[in-house]
Design a binder for these strands. Sequence first.
DNA 1: GGATACATCCCCAAAAAAGGGGATTTTTAC
DNA 2: GTAAAAATCCCCTTTTTTGGGGATGTATCC
Lengths: 203, 203
Amino acid sequence: MIKIFVVDDHPMVIEGLQTMLLRLPDSEVVGYAMTAASCLGYFMHHTADIILLDINLPDQNGIELCGTLRKKYPDTKIIALTNFDQLSYIQGMRDAGAQGYLLKNSSFEEIDTAINAVINGGSYWLGHEDIRESIQEHNQPLLTRREIEVLKLVAEGLTNIEIAEKLFISVTTVDSHRKNLISKLQVKNTAALVRVAIENKMI
Amino acid sequence: MIKIFVVDDHPMVIEGLQTMLLRLPDSEVVGYAMTAASCLGYFMHHTADIILLDINLPDQNGIELCGTLRKKYPDTKIIALTNFDQLSYIQGMRDAGAQGYLLKNSSFEEIDTAINAVINGGSYWLGHEDIRESIQEHNQPLLTRREIEVLKLVAEGLTNIEIAEKLFISVTTVDSHRKNLISKLQVKNTAALVRVAIENKMI
DNA sequence: GGATACATCCCCAAAAAAGGGGATTTTTAC
DNA sequence: GTAAAAATCCCCTTTTTTGGGGATGTATCC
């Protein structure tokens, strides 16, 4: 019996997955969590074979949670669950140790395929060929933690000076980060930076 | 018995809603569609009391479909179903004749409340107070044609000088537009301007 | 006809960002 | 333990934005 745990903050998705997974002969949903905290709470006393993990959680980033879970419970496989357009996070999930990635609009068959692939030691990265390609080729100019932090504050309208005060670092450092961001995302100013960042769901 | 029809291209959401709605004593899901076309096909020969309608459909915009359905079948109420961040579409849905609006991460209770409100001739616009306010009061800080034109170019990363050249107007004029944009959207610089503009789907 | 909104233009000064360097210390990864 | 990556800091100059004014012609709406 494959024990599956679902982490998602959408009641509909939890219900939907539970119903769909009932049709799989050798699997059962042993529980679910709507926050990262309650997920970690569950695994302190229970276990599971596969976690279906949403990236957007209210209290913590799904990627971080994935990293934490994989470190603590290396035997539990993780399949990321996201919406269609969040390309940029996929690589993060892969780097965080996930074995698979499913789109939220996946069919029952796809979910079945993914679970079977992962439980047998394999991996499952997307159904859509084109997306898979665009991840492997494109390989995303991945931003660092600090850069993303600065980027978010920039998009909120803070100036370098304000950001420096907020993060307790020098203005020149913030300026460096901003320059690196502009360079990495190949834009020419802050306005375009914010647009590209939002379009690629980096913030 | 309240007859409910679900339109969404996510199998999980369909399953989830079906399961959740089973708990409502006086209602039943009479069918579902994953495309606008199949939805219209259904209503050629069947009927329903309420349609739970996703905005993102593969073949047509949910807002357009809402307008079409309301015109053809005025007795069928429509509750829009969307993700959290698509604020700008809500007004479109309201104008298209929808009676309610639900977030996809709504709880069972919220869905129940919304359906009851609508079936009794009322309406249900969001659970989140702050969002409801921002729609009713705010009611669009409407930008002029020219301002939107400038805004788009700003978001592309063009400087005032470049925009002026592109539109064959003076730099000071572009500057005025930019100032008005910042003032109208109540932000303090271009970075925040671009973010807010994208969030509200103005560009 | 008069009010109103829109688009256009101008001045000035201060603040911030952009563009070009380079350098050091911490973390992280193997 | 070492190499690479990330985060930190500094210099300089030029360009651009921001913030405060104000003004004029032209549609548009009632």
